[in-house]
Each structure stands twice: as structure tokens, then as C-alpha cells.
């Protein structure tokens, strides 16, 4: 009898122990959750940084290679330099306008007359999906195949292979759209940055509340 009673008591004690442990664990979890919600700044800081297509901005190892390469940068006689038999100044241009929420790719001839335009929105990506590197790459591949194709697409056939690229702005599509153009079979001769930067701009809009 006594032994049985002891057994029961021990079992009860174990049960109490377990429930206490569980309770303690629950309390800690809820406390952590509360802290996360309360300190929004900390949460935002812990998130990964948004992809701006500015890879290599802070890469120190690139500096050495910049010094070494002489033919990386244009010179005074670059406009007349031949690329596949076409002077550099007569190569058609791809203008890529990148923003955090969209990527617009515009194909123009050497003089700057627009021939084709395509954006992530036209491509079928809507809302937040527009502002992704995947959308930018898909758009670039589409417009790239339009220009490289030798068949009749959009009123004319082009068969253009060699182009120069001009990029404007920062956003997730900055790198991926250039890669997409290359994947479409275009040979990119040069990349130019045309981001509009002013050191005495008019007053910009107020900061977003986070």
C-alpha cells in the first residue's frame, strides 16, 4: 500500500515539475515576441539590406584591377572605334531606368530615337513583384529577343547583336536587367551610368515614416 501511495506521489510531483517547466518556457517565448514587435527599428536593422544592384560598391579588391586595365575606359578616339564593323558612336543604345519599384527598358537607335519600350509592368508583373530582379531579368530577355530576332516582330525585323547600355538609378533591376540582355544573346560593348545626381537639388520629398 505504502509503496503504491509513494508511486502516486512521485508521479504527481513529476507532473507538477513538467507543467512548471512548460510555463517558464512559454513566458520566455512570449517575452521575446513582445520585444520584437515593440522595437521596430531593431527588427528593421536585422532584415537583410535591399538589393540595389550596386554590387562591388565597397569592394576594395576592385581598386587594383582598375589601375591595371587601360582599355577598360573610353578615350578621345573611342567614338570611332569599330565594334563588329560599326563605330562606337553608331551602336544602338539600351536605356535602362531602374527604380526600387520598377524597371523600364527602352531601346533606341544611335541618335536616341526610341524604337521599343518594355517595363516590368508591361511584362505582366504587378504591384510589388515589379520591383524584383527576376521581373527585370524577364523583361530584359523579352526586349532582348525582340531586337536580336531576325523575323518580323513589332513592325520590323532588326537582327541587332551589338549594343551599348545606359543605366539610370538604383534598384533591384540594375544588375539583373543587364544580365538578362546578355542572356537574350546581345553583345554588350559598354555600360554607362547615367544616374542623375545633384549636389544642390531642389528640396526632395519628406522622409517616409517607418
Amino acid at each position: 500500500m505504502l509503496r503504491n501511495q509513494l508511486h502516486v506521489i512521485v508521479k504527481d510531483l513529476l507532473c507538477i515539475d513538467k507543467s512548471i517547466c512548460n510555463n517558464i518556457r512559454n513566458i520566455t517565448v512570449s517575452a521575446q515576441r513582445c520585444r520584437d514587435v515593440v522595437d521596430r527599428k531593431e527588427m528593421l536593422r536585422s532584415l537583410p539590406a535591399a538589393d540595389e544592384g550596386a554590387a562591388g560598391e565597397k569592394a576594395v579588391d576592385v581598386d587594383a584591377s582598375i589601375q591595371k586595365r587601360i582599355d577598360t575606359f573610353p578615350t578621345a578616339d573611342t567614338p570611332n572605334k569599330l565594334f563588329k564593323g560599326i563605330p562606337f558612336k553608331d551602336l544602338p543604345i539600351f536605356n535602362i531606368r531602374v527604380s526600387p519599384n520598377n524597371t523600364i527598358i527602352n531601346f533606341t537607335d544611335a541618335k536616341g530615337f526610341p524604337k521599343l519600350i518594355r517595363s516590368c509592368g508591361i511584362e505582366g508583373f504587378k504591384n510589388t513583384r515589379k520591383g524584383t530582379n527576376i521581373a527585370a531579368q524577364a523583361t530584359a530577355i523579352t526586349i532582348g529577343t525582340y531586337t536580336t530576332a531576325n523575323v518580323l516582330i513589332r513592325c520590323s525585323k532588326r537582327g541587332i547583336k551589338t549594343v551599348r547600355v545606359r543605366v539610370q538609378g538604383l534598384g533591384p533591376g540594375r544588375m539583373s536587367s543587364i544580365k538578362g540582355l546578355q542572356m537574350a544573346g546581345l553583345e554588350i560593348v559598354s555600360i554607362t551610368d547615367n544616374t542623375k545626381v545633384s549636389w544642390n537639388p531642389p528640396r526632395p520629398r519628406k522622409q517616409k515614416k517607418l
Partner: peptide
């Protein structure tokens, strides 16, 4: 244009 801020590939 295409002289400043330009890099050849």
C-alpha cells in the same frame, strides 16, 4: 555621353 562614367565589357 558614353565617355563619362563608362566602362567597356
Amino acid at each position: 555621353s558614353f565617355i563619362a562614367r563608362t566602362v567597356f565589357v
